[in-house]
Design a protein around this nucleic acid. Structure first.
Lengths: 147, 147
DNA sequence: AGCATTTCTTTGACATGTCATAGAAATCTG
DNA sequence: CAGATTTCTATGACATGTCAAAGAAATGCT
């Protein structure tokens, strides 16, 4: 017995679907102007949050919620652009340690303010603090559901 | 002068980012079990909402918010699978009219209940009607911002 | 210790999306 | 009406993601 969506549910779901596609694409477009893809930015900022700017692929992939294959491919491209390096892990010769280069850090520093403006202009500044908190709470509830 | 995010804003934004990536990926995974990609499903359901199951590429792409190139490529693949057909537009020989095949409609009908369950299980059923309405209203506000 | 199993990153083949362009047809202009 | 311009879809080249498999190293078992 399929429970179809009520009219209200349907309307809300349509709005949320649009939100899900449109916001990321706007942020990506803004970032592209700064010379980075969204994926690039995530990699750089995640790496930069690590104290020594290093991370082994496996944990890095878990942290980013990316497949290891995806991260390895993407890292290869970023390495070719000089934004990160990959070195063998001294503690486990199978492993690979990713490290942010100076150029990568510089590019991130240069792009961050623009990206932040973008997040404000496309999202944060259009909600009151209470609305943002509510939205964050509901988003978290959904995101925290089991996979 | 860059206005950084406050701690509250940062927390909410992180939750929303996770929501933006995780929910679509779960829905896509569920749909894949049913033999369709999310893109396939959107194409089929959008076409099926048209009274005669036909749509010219241009307006179709606008409705879906896809580039015409993307839709043309995707339609080529779906045509090869027998889910839609493309015919020249009698009113404008440059144009192309997309039409849902019986097989396409059948596949959509077969997948729809499962997808609906998925939307409920991954999203709708975890919010009260009031929460869903609020979320929909906020999502709509953001989505309706100029591009 | 030795062999099988597991774990790890990388790679290759392939699916999908973007951007620029081709080629045909409609529209605009004088 | 003729020629230039615009508009249209399809396509090719390329970037990016997925999935399966390869190859090396660590781990487990007897």
């Amino acid at each position: 017995m399929t429970r179809w969506l009520t009219a209200d549910e349907e309307q809300a779901w349509r709005a949320v679907r649009r939100f899900l596609t449109v916001l990321p694409s706007r942020l990506a477009r803004d970032l592209n102007q700064l010379g980075l893809s969204s994926a690039d930015y995530e990699v750089l900022s995640t790496l930069s949050e690590q104290p020594d700017h290093r991370w082994g692929l496996r944990d890095f992939a878990v942290k980013m919620q990316w497949s290891r294959s995806r991260l390895s491919h993407h890292a290869g491209r970023m390495e070719a652009r000089g934004l990160i390096t990959r070195e063998p892990d001294p503690a486990d010769a199978r492993g690979s340690i990713y490290h942010l280069t100076d150029a990568g850090l510089e590019l991130l520093r240069q792009a961050a303010p623009g990206h932040l403006d973008s997040v404000r202009e496309r999202f944060v500044d259009h909600l009151t603090p209470a609305e943002l908190a509510t939205l964050g709470r509901l988003a978290e509830r959904i995101a925290d559901l089991p996979d």
